[in-house]
Design a protein around this nucleic acid. Structure first.
Length: 256
DNA sequence: AAACACGCCAACCGCACAGCC
DNA sequence: TGGCTGTGCGGTTGGCGTGTT
């Protein structure tokens, strides 16, 4: 199916945003919100396509964006989450308050990837491409973002940006093993590569995580609130240990 | 001081999905 | 039911700054 361009390219500005455009966009969104990205630039008087406006807002202008260097905790979280989730940048971003998927993606490709590759032997673990459907991920990510996010969704989001029955079990991503993350924690991978995640695992783990406070990677219920303080390393370790315990794979972990 | 190489990051592109009509 | 539209996502690119020769 051939789709029309997201916007009429004719006469629309591209390239870097000016401070004036930024101000216009921010002012308009603060006043009217962004219910319709496509119509927004026209209403705001911007010569940009809606897509561009959306990107600019999400990646740069949002008031809750945390700028500056990534902390070591954040980097560690990214590495671990990437090992587990693959290139699901939006999902990873949802776990790191104030960080955008684009930013995380950039950091991964520029810093963390090299570090990760140099510190771990090649495992042949390829991150699944997005061909696989991932319904709840997007839902959760947007729920974390939006001011109208449901508390329940937020709670789930806190414990894991993924819901039971989601792509891990309904798509090719079901083949996802925990090999990489286990490798990360120093475990042998031969056994872990056999490990498969099923629906019940996620159901149980999520249920448990919701009830156990503070075991998530981060604790913000939305992106907006300033709960940007990263969780401690102990909490992170608890999180992963909990996951592995729940998966019945604690034996291999205990051998570390 | 100039030329070149490299790294970083903002922005763009195209695809996929969900919802609406 | 199928097509269309809007939105979100991941991959990729291009420009700029910095380091090196």
């Amino acid at each position: 199916m051939v789709r029309a361009p997201c916007c009429e390219k004719m006469g629309l500005k591209r390239g870097p945003w000016t401070a004036e455009e930024d101000m216009t966009l921010v002012a308009h969104i603060e006043q009217h919100g962004h219910s319709n990205w496509r119509a927004l630039p026209k209403q705001a008087g911007l010569l940009r396509c809606g897509k561009s406006c959306r990107l600019r807002w999400i990646n740069y202008l949002r008031p809750d964006i945390k700028r500056g260097n990534f902390t070591s905790d954040e980097e560690e979280a990214i590495i671990q989450l990437h090992a587990m989730l693959g290139n699901r940048w939006s999902t990873i971003a949802a776990r790191l308050p104030g960080r955008t998927d684009n930013e995380i993606k950039n950091v991964w490709h520029t810093h963390l990837k090299k570090r990760f590759e140099s510190s771990s032997k090649p495992s042949g673990q390829a991150a699944p491409k997005r061909k696989a459907k991932k319904p709840a991920v997007a839902a959760t990510a947007s729920a974390l973002e939006g001011p109208t996010s449901e508390p329940a969704a937020s709670s789930l989001g806190q414990s894991l940006s993924m819901s039971p029955g989601q792509s891990l079990s309904t798509s090719s991503a079901a083949d996802y093993s925990m090999a990489s993350s286990l490798e990360n924690t120093g475990s042998s991978s031969s056994e872990s590569e056999e490990f498969q995640i099923d629906d019940s695992f996620w159901s149980e783990t999520l249920a448990m995580s919701v009830h156990s406070s503070g075991s998530g990677m981060e604790t913000s219920d939305t992106f907006g609130v300033d709960s940007a303080s990263p969780s401690s390393s102990n909490d992170e370790m608890d999180f992963w240990v909990t996951l592995f315990m729940q998966a019945g794979d604690i034996q291999s972990l205990s051998q570390i």
